[in-house]
Design a protein around this nucleic acid. Structure first.
Lengths: 181, 181
DNA sequence: CATTAAACCAAACAACCGTTTGGTGCGGTC
DNA sequence: GACCGCACCAAACGGTTGTTTGGTTTAATG
């Protein structure tokens, strides 16, 4: 019976949120991308904010499985884990040219407290995974600091990529990150 | 006769754009901050987008006078110029906790071509001023690359500051920037 | 085949958006 | 003192927003 599953709507919505942001994406936009009228979306989700929240959850899951998990893959050396994780990040952002979490965070810091918490949790988890690969070499506190710096550097580079369509700073940043081990 | 000057409206609007973004700031918001009804704003500006454009111009002027100019102040050594500029940047962003250019750029990349050009020009000018201080020490092309990386790093650190209210990455980034000379 | 519930459409809803209009009060000028 | 133009308000404009409602199609089940 099902024709359009909720996950498909979430994927289309996430893509729109990434390129246009949350406020600039209307229910009609999400509907059109999903092949529905805007009213029909409310059969799958209770509100627009719920779509955002679930879409961010889904994105966190993707990062967990495809990127963060590489940092804990014990079939590789630590250097290999770092390389794999950084390369996965680099490929993701060069392909998508923007970070939904960063984009939405600016719109959601005041209202939408739950979304703000989700975004903070995402970046904390990212830092934790990143610091994990660096810990034995640099020690816990230094590793955490290096991870924090690397993530914020990467976000800045993604912003530059979004503004100038120039991936050079991102590539240089990833090269530097790989040299941390 | 004049009671509210246009520059006051621009300052209030810029402050709102910085914290809430462009789309989330309504004419009523700008009016309330300026002590006017939203309709009255149209006596000073032709449209909301014009307010954004002029506010960004005004911000560019402030950066030019108070930050970029330090990089060319020939009463100082190059090391002193770099220190002064980086400290000015650091103080500005710790005080304001967000970058309007970065915030608006995400909302203005698709539509609002003029605003996008203004933002690109701002970052190019920033890179030029930054690279100017580094040129004699590192050579033109390397200086440009270092400036690009420093700016994108700083923007990432400002994003982190905005999300976690934690200025540590920004302070570390500025320390690193000062060590470029 | 009848029943049922999910999936969807078409239409309307109130609220808000940026913008326009017409009118009011004021300060300065002839 | 009549006039003018600026600064502003109050109200309305058409359009869009997120959301709700009621009815219609669809597909699986007994």
């Amino acid at each position: 019976m099902k024709k359009t599953d909720a996950e498909s709507i979430l994927d289309h919505a996430l893509s729109l949120f990434r390129s246009r942001g949350y406020k600039s994406t209307s229910m009609a936009d999400i509907g059109k991308a999903s092949g529905l009228l805007k009213g029909s979306i409310y059969h799958h989700f209770p509100s627009k904010e719920a779509i955002l929240s679930q879409a961010l959850d889904r994105l966190s899951g993707h990062f967990e499985k495809q990127i963060f998990s590489l940092a804990q893959d014990e079939s590789m050396t630590e250097k290999q884990r770092l390389d794999a994780m950084v390369s996965a990040m680099e490929g993701y952002f060069i392909k998508n040219k923007a970070c939904v979490m960063a984009h939405v965070s600016m719109e959601a810091m005041d209202d939408m407290a739950q979304v703000r918490d989700q975004i903070q949790a995402f970046f904390r988890r990212w830092r934790s995974a990143f610091a994990g690969v660096l810990a034995t070499r640099h020690g816990g506190s230094v590793a955490r600091r290096l991870a924090e710096d690397s993530i914020s550097q990467l976000e800045g580079a993604v912003l530059w990529l979004n503004i100038f369509d120039d991936p050079a700073p991102l590539k240089r940043m990833c090269k530097r990150a790989r040299e941390l081990l």
